[in-house]
């Protein structure tokens, strides 16, 4: 057919953007819903913490390390059967979201744990000493104190996700990254490659800026 770069962009860019948005939305949404509590659980079951539980802590840590030690492309292929089971498909953005969700939850949970461990332990101790329940300590101390870090971690997760989602092209996940690889790389459409890469750069910049601004607004240290 002899598509010009412009034709490709007109016909596929809208779809690719939608697919990227869909994959990111599902993955980020679920990593917030599952990764955040998992990160709290990892932190709270640490030694000397409110819910100290060595077995649970080791198990959670191991599961996260397991996911994080696999190259994403391998994870993508390994969970194909699971994706089929959950979504009924093995291709398309929804099916590709399954490995993305797993990777993002593991990634974000670890970042949540790190943010929480940076909260001044004295404040938690003060709350304990004054009779606060565990739930109150989480709600009134740990969460607000760690919030800037939680937002920054979420930003990092979102940006990694944009990179991962490009690989989802391998299983026909689609998205901007897929467009870049398929047209720009395999078909030598340099124009498409440049536009898509520029788009990815702009997207990452925007996410980072938004995240920084939001985190800064919630940061009360020294102000």
């Amino acid at each position: 057919m002899g598509d010009t770069p412009l034709d490709v962009l007109f016909s596929d860019l809208g779809k690719a953007l939608w697919e990227t948005a869909l994959m990111s939305g599902i993955s980020l949404g679920l990593s917030l819903v599952a990764g955040l509590p998992l990160g709290f659980l990892l932190f709270l079951t640490r030694r000397g913490m409110l819910l100290e539980n060595r077995a649970l802590n080791l198990l959670g840590g191991f599961a996260i390390n397991l996911v994080r030690s696999l190259p994403f492309v391998i994870l993508l292929i390994l969970v194909l059967p699971l994706a089929k089971l959950v979504t009924g498909h093995t291709t398309g953005p929804v099916a590709a979201s399954v490995p993305l969700v797993i990777a993002c939850i593991a990634f974000y949970a670890r970042l949540v744990e790190v943010s929480l461990s940076e909260v001044n332990t004295g404040v938690v101790e003060a709350a304990r000493a004054l009779g606060a329940t565990h739930w109150l300590i989480v709600r009134e101390v740990l969460f607000p104190e760690a919030l800037p870090g939680l937002i920054r971690g979420f930003t990092v997760t979102a940006i990694s996700l944009i990179g991962y989602s490009a690989m989802a092209g391998v299983v026909g996940g689609g998205g901007i990254g897929f467009l870049a690889i398929n047209y720009g790389y395999y078909r030598y459409e340099t124009g498409v490659l440049i536009v898509t890469v520029a788009l990815l750069i702009a997207l990452v910049q925007a996410v980072q800026m938004l995240g920084d601004r939001f985190a800064h607004r919630h940061d009360r240290r020294g102000r």
């Binding site: 001044n120 004295g122 404040v123 101790e125 003060a126 000493a129 607000p144 104190e145 919630h218």
Partner: peptide
């Protein structure tokens, strides 16, 4: 039982 600390231990986000 109230408790007061050397480094105050206030939540800075609140």
């Amino acid at each position: 039982t109230g408790m007061v600390f050397q480094h105050f231990n206030l939540a800075h986000s609140r």
